[in-house]
Amino acid sequence: MNSRKTVVTTLGGMIAASVLAAAPAAPTQVGFVYVSPVGDAGWTYQHDIGRKEMEKAMGGQVTTKFVENVPEGADAERVVRGLVTGGAKIVFTTSFGYMNPTEKVARAFPDRFFFHATGYKTGPNMGIYNARFYEGRFLNGVIAGKMTKSNIAGYVAAFPIPEVMQGINAFTQGMRSVNPKAEVRVIWVNSWFDPGKEREAALTLISQGADMITHHTDSTAIVQAAEEKHKENKNVYAFSYHSDMSKYGPTAQLTGTTHHWGAFYTRTVKEVLAGTWKGTNVWGGFKEGMIQLAPLNKAIPADVKALVQKEEKAMAAGKFHPFAGPVVAQDGKIKVPKGKTMTDAELGAMDYYVQGVASTLPKK
């Protein structure tokens, strides 16, 4: 009788062990922190598309969770910490102002992994990533320079950080590469997402003579404002940012600089799960597929389209750089001499306007 119990017990244990061994591992939780609502266009929308692409590519290996409309600062730290204590092994924080809160939480949880977009601080378990938005901005500027009638472009900007300065200056460089008379006027709204302020700024720039407008903010307000004015026979055109916003400006949007994060998110999560991640400092452009131009409006002349396509291919091949010298600051100082190209370190420290920007930079 005892021997039978032993056999039964042993067999039961073997079956249980077999079941446990066959049971799939629980999916890894991946968290995302967004600075604005997801919506259907814009910076956060593009990151959310990337999240979904990564989740699909990973099959059942991961589950994802996001928190949207999170203010930069102390509240961001609370949200990041909450994702980790709620089970997230990997967290992506997607706005510049999340950098210090992300770093603080990363130090507190050394067994978790954190990735911050657009910042510069890293750690043993914290990587950074960004896209070379300025490449697309230069090409947008080329189109603006060729098509403007007033020689004035308007730029609605969020905060005067290097990433935004790169975009303003690249757009200006592109515009003046084909039209030395062109100038760019900038209005700062001090917010990543405030459709009301963005719209007001766009209309102000248009009233000042801008017939080409663009933005480094998150909403569709600028493209919508341009569409409204275009319909009033003012021939105002716009360049979207983050997403293709042509459904909000089917006539006015000429193209835009769009961002693509899915491949990066998928690759990074795979590396973490495989135990092969050794640090991330990614800055990708046309070559890496992290930025693309939105479809070109049929209003763009054929020769301009050909020029833009030629310069895009040259950028992707590393044969052309938007900040190849000479690069001259607004005050006349030479930042990059002829024959040289601006380094990534110099790009990351950009805190000035180039010649061609007609506005005054806010004081720190």
Rank of each mutant, 00 (worst) to 15 (best):
V156I: 12
A131G: 05
V105T: 04
F133N: 15
F159T: 03
A157C: 07
N130S: 15
S150G: 05
E135P: 04
F159S: 12
P110K: 13
A131S: 14
A131L: 10
P124C: 04
I161R: 02
N130D: 13
I128A: 11
I128D: 09
A106L: 06
G154K: 08
V156D: 09
G141M: 06
V164M: 08
P110R: 11
I152Q: 13
V164R: 09
T148V: 05
A153Q: 05
A108K: 10
N151L: 09
P160W: 01
R137F: 14
N130C: 10
D111F: 03
Y155H: 12
P160N: 06
D111K: 12
A153W: 00
K104S: 15
G154W: 04
I152E: 08
V142M: 14
A106D: 10
R137H: 12
I128L: 13
Y129G: 14
A157D: 10
P162G: 09
Y155P: 05
R132L: 13
V142N: 07
E163L: 13
S150L: 05
M165S: 06
M126K: 12
F109L: 09
A153E: 06
G119F: 06
A153M: 12
A158H: 02
F113T: 01
N130M: 11
N130K: 05
Y155G: 11
V142D: 10
G154R: 07
Q166W: 04
G136C: 06
P160L: 01
F115M: 12
L139R: 04
I143Q: 09
